[in-house]
Amino acid sequence: MVKTQHNASHMVEYGEPVGIIAAQSVGEPGTQMILRSFHLAGIESTISTSGLPRIIELVDAKKKPSTPVTYIYLESRINKSFEKSEELLKKINEVRMSGIAKRVLENFSKGMIKVVLDRQELEVEGLTAKQIASKINKELDLDADVKEGNIIISTHTKNLKEIRAASIKIMKMLVSGIDGAGRGTIRRDEKTGEFYLVSGGSNIDGIMGIDGVDKKRTTTNDIFAIYRLFGIEGARNALVFELKKTLKEQKISVDERHLDLIADAMTSMGTIKGVGRHGLSGEKKSVFARAAYEETMKHLIHAAAFGEIDSMRGVTENILVGKQMPIGTGSVKLAIKKEDLAKIKPKQ
């Protein structure tokens, strides 16, 4: 498929076991990665999973990354100014009531909850007590009032359980920002001088809805979020990008074509499939290939019960039975044309 761009001599030979070569090329440096794990202390505000654990996460097609990170790029009218970027960050930063409350006092005899607010936190987030009180009124359907800078909520009940439930609800309430977006920091791109945001959350859908966010460039390390929003090709490219980035962080150089092939194989069915038992290896057509990998008895019994047929076209199953495997010269078979057969005369 690549022949129009590349010289024919650069192309892979027919029968080359590209998958095996890719697996070995990634696997060998992978063994070094366990021993060498280093961190840049202090610089990163969100320490994301790196090294071998991250590679495993990617090739196993985990639904959620263990440390989601969203890179939020801003529109050109905002991204040159630090103040404007900061303003936008405040819209995204997830602030919950528990983060801005100093103390919560529950008065069970009067059925009141008093929330003592942390003035400094309020100032940092750019919020006022009034805004919060009206938010409680609207979202939780409670009567909230501001008294001396603190919030007094009357629950209209003297039931201990209900008051406690209400106070828990209040503490969990989202005061500002986007649900699940986490807290972000502002970074500056050294090359272009533009500001962008890095947030430790994964709610890219919500972030995309904010005015001023560059929807074309904002990205995340959550492959499945990319898949949902932009489809399989976007997910494939995100997967390659993440694999390359993780290997580069560890100063390991693997030819990118191996990573391309892995990503292509994982996305070839239209959805993202891991490489393991529940993915590519577990869904091979050949019974023997599956049985040779994991859960041998399960596959053999299933094959026996349902009369599965193994066409013996793959590598694994042919090694298993001791036949020549169909790679390299082994992938060529000799045949004779019917009309030529007639020409052959038996020896006298």
């Binding site: 460039r217 929003l229 932009f230 976007g234 490219n237």
Partner: peptide, 28 residues
């Protein structure tokens, strides 16, 4: 509907019947 335009996404294009026929013949 949210935008599906993104730097990660290459250009997609629907193929015509004629193009499909040529492609399948070319790649066998």
């Amino acid at each position: 509907m949210p935008s599906t335009d993104h730097i990660l996404v290459p250009e997609h294009e629907l193929m015509s019947d004629k193009e499909i026929k040529e492609l399948l013949k070319d790649l066998d």
